[in-house]
Design a protein around this nucleic acid. Structure first.
Length: 295
DNA sequence: TACCAGGTAAAAA
DNA sequence: TTTTTACATGGT
């Protein structure tokens, strides 16, 4: 039997909207819009988890999944993935009167980013998305997950509900096996190297959570294969730092130019300047601009 | 068919 | 020190 737990999240929050935007970002198979289904790990064991919104205001969610004795863990995982503790109110207050952002946050009220279940998954995802298109990266990443991940009991067979591989598993994979998923030799080395450092206990990604942005950037940039783009990408997508923006990012440069510039793609410096007024929510502002072009 | 796509490390100059 | 180059796959 599955266990069910209800919990409150910081409002305003709209799970369906957040899911819709999240699915727009990565070209995965579209799921039922109001039900969030994901395969996560609880103490290494793959678990199939479902989350749905049961109350709008104040927002409350319901999480369900096996095994029964690990309810509290599932809730805290769901809180992390869905950003339960993020308060959008001060951001809305700051940008509400802005001629461009104002109408956008009004239209997307309750939208929060959805984080990957683990920072390891986020880091590997960043590597897969370097340089190539999101569509190509998604296919490659799915081959890695399919080959090395674990399908939780109870998960629908036809859905891509597979828990992301453990660092130990990718550390043991050969470069050839990783390459056969479509990764370049270099990227296979980056991923195996990261996984090995974690598996050997030399690297603890959880330390990132306590670091200020600049320190976290420097820390990530010390790993082979992780440059400035990946560092910012992990900060904004993996940690959800509301003021962090990957200013080099092609998508960000495009969308900021589109909404805050003359319509053409900006340079990184131009993006920095254009987002300046939204400090300390520059990352959220960029996220909302990216989102509005998806919905 | 070519070229670009939400970069990075390593080689070459 | 600064500037090229190789890389993998999917969409257009």
């Amino acid at each position: 039997m599955s266990v069910v737990e209800k919990f409150a999240v910081e409002g305003p929050y709209d799970l369906s909207l957040s899911l819709q935007v999240s699915q727009g970002f990565s070209p995965g198979p579209a799921a039922e819009s109001s039900l969030f289904q994901v395969a996560v790990r609880v103490d290494d064991a793959p678990v199939f988890m479902k989350v749905e919104q049961v109350e709008k205001e104040p927002p409350a969610l319901k999480v369900s999944g096996d095994p029964t004795e690990k309810t509290g863990r599932l809730r805290s995982i769901a809180e992390w993935i869905l950003f339960a503790d993020l308060d959008l109110t001060p951001f809305y207050q700051q940008v509400g009167a802005h001629s461009v952002l104002g109408p956008i946050v009004q239209r997307l009220e309750g939208l929060k980013p959805i984080r990957p279940p683990s920072l390891f998954e986020m880091a590997v995802t960043a590597v897969t998305e370097q340089q190539i298109s999101m569509a190509a990266a998604y296919q490659i990443r799915w081959r890695v997950v399919d080959a090395f991940g674990d399908r939780p009991p109870g998960a629908p067979e036809d859905a891509r509900l597979v828990a992301f591989p453990k660092p130990e598993t990718l550390a043991e994979a050969t470069l050839e096996e990783l390459q056969s998923c479509g990764l370049s030799r270099r990227k296979a080395e980056y991923i195996k190297g990261l996984a090995t450092a974690i598996a050997d206990g030399e690297l603890d990604l959880k330390r990132l959570k306590a670091m200020p942005n600049d320190e976290a950037r420097a820390f990530i940039s010390g790993w082979r294969g992780f440059g400035p783009w990946s560092a910012d990408y992990i900060l904004v997508r993996g940690l959800g730092r509301p003021d962090s923006v990957p200013v080099d990012d092609l998508g960000v440069r495009t969308v900021v130019g589109e909404y805050l510039g003359d319509g053409s793609r900006m340079t990184a410096d131009q993006v920095r300047e254009a987002l300046g007024p939204f400090k300390p929510y520059r990352g959220l502002a960029a996220f909302y601009l990216l989102a509005v072009s998806q919905v």
